[in-house]
Amino acid sequence: MSWTQADADFAAEIAVAAGKLLQEVRASRDWEPKELGKAGDAAANELLCHAISIERPDDGLLSEERKCDGSRLTKSRTWIIDPVDGTREYGEARDDWAVHVALCIDGRPELGVVALPDAGLVLRSDAPPALQPLNHPPRMVISRTRPAAEAIAVAEAIGAELVPMGSAGAKAMAVVRGLADIYLHSGGQHEWDNAAPVAVALAAGLHATRLDGSPFVYNCAETWVPDLLICRKELLAEVTEALRATAAAN
């Protein structure tokens, strides 16, 4: 079983619709940031889950904002969504938040859409952008609020410039777009944080795995994903060696 162009267009359509709804919610009145995050999450989640349940009723569904009943675990095709990736950034009216829609088939991230509504961008695995020239020195995106110690150590080892950024989707797409070359995270995420970004990154020709090089497997009973590395393949050997040296030193 595989995905179709109709699946890809559907994923993009609902990601864009959710992004527009989130912007409308934010503009509807003055909000406290945390209150806005909750309202936006709820509204976008309802839109996405309703659309998938109506248009793809036989598929599984996993959302950050929806209690999982376990039925997805019996499905070959499962949609994994994050209605607002980067709630803090959304609440602060920054542009580094995202909407994630992924279709995983037998655990593989086969299709992904990452919408960056305030940046006016939609990145799709079925039509990934061409990779841009490497940055010199290389640039590594890290969390604005919780930069991973391993990422900082690797950046120092290879002479990379650190670029703080918001959501996981925005950071991954910065590498896809050529604004950065490396996204290394060891602080843990959930499947909805990286399924769509990983699908787009792989389709664009980037390296995207766990830190130990193992592939991502999605639609698991345990949704926790301890770490990830998305980077240009030209830098993989250098980054991997720096990771090994960092681990040995600790």
Rank of each mutant, 00 (worst) to 15 (best):
M1S: 11
S2K: 08
Q5W: 10
Q5F: 11
Q5I: 00
Q5R: 09
Q5Y: 07
Q5L: 09
D7Y: 12
F10V: 00
A15Q: 05
V16G: 11
V16S: 15
A18S: 15
G19M: 06
K20H: 12
L22F: 12
L22D: 11
V25L: 11
A27Y: 13
A27G: 13
S28V: 02
R29G: 14
R29L: 07
D30A: 10
E32D: 14
E32G: 10
L36Q: 12
L36G: 14
K38D: 13
A39Y: 13
G40V: 01
A42G: 03
N45K: 04
E46I: 00
L47R: 09
H50P: 03
A51N: 03
I52Q: 11
E55G: 06
P57S: 01
D58T: 02
G60S: 07
L61R: 10
E64W: 03
R66Q: 14
K67E: 15
C68Y: 08
T74H: 15
K75T: 01
W79E: 00
V84L: 07
D85Q: 01
R88C: 06
R88P: 09
E89C: 05
E89F: 09
E89G: 08
R94N: 10
D96W: 05
V101W: 00
A102W: 00
G107T: 01
R108V: 06
R108I: 04
E110A: 10
E110R: 09
L111N: 05
L116A: 12
L116F: 15
P117M: 03
P117S: 06
P117H: 11
G120Y: 10
G120A: 05
L121V: 05
A130H: 04
Q132K: 13
P133T: 02
N135P: 06
H136G: 06
P138A: 06
R139W: 08
R139N: 06
M140I: 08
I142D: 14
S143T: 01
A149H: 13
A149T: 05
A151R: 07
A155R: 07
E156D: 13
A157W: 04
I158Q: 01
A160L: 09
A160V: 06
E161L: 12
E161G: 05
M165S: 14
A168L: 01
A172W: 09
A172F: 14
V175A: 10
V176F: 11
G178Y: 04
A180V: 08
A180L: 08
A180T: 03
Y183T: 01
Q189A: 15
H190F: 14
W192F: 13
D193W: 03
D193S: 09
D193E: 08
A195H: 03
A196G: 08
A196E: 04
A201R: 00
A204N: 05
G205E: 01
G205H: 04
A208I: 03
R210A: 15
S214Y: 02
S214K: 08
P215A: 12
F216T: 02
V217Q: 15
Y218T: 00
N219R: 06
T223P: 14
W224P: 03
W224F: 15
V225R: 12
P226Y: 11
P226W: 07
D227K: 09
D227R: 04
L228D: 04
I230S: 03
C231V: 01
K233D: 12
E234P: 06
L235M: 08
L236P: 12
V239R: 06
V239S: 08
T240I: 02
A242R: 08
R244W: 11
T246K: 11
T246F: 15
A249M: 05
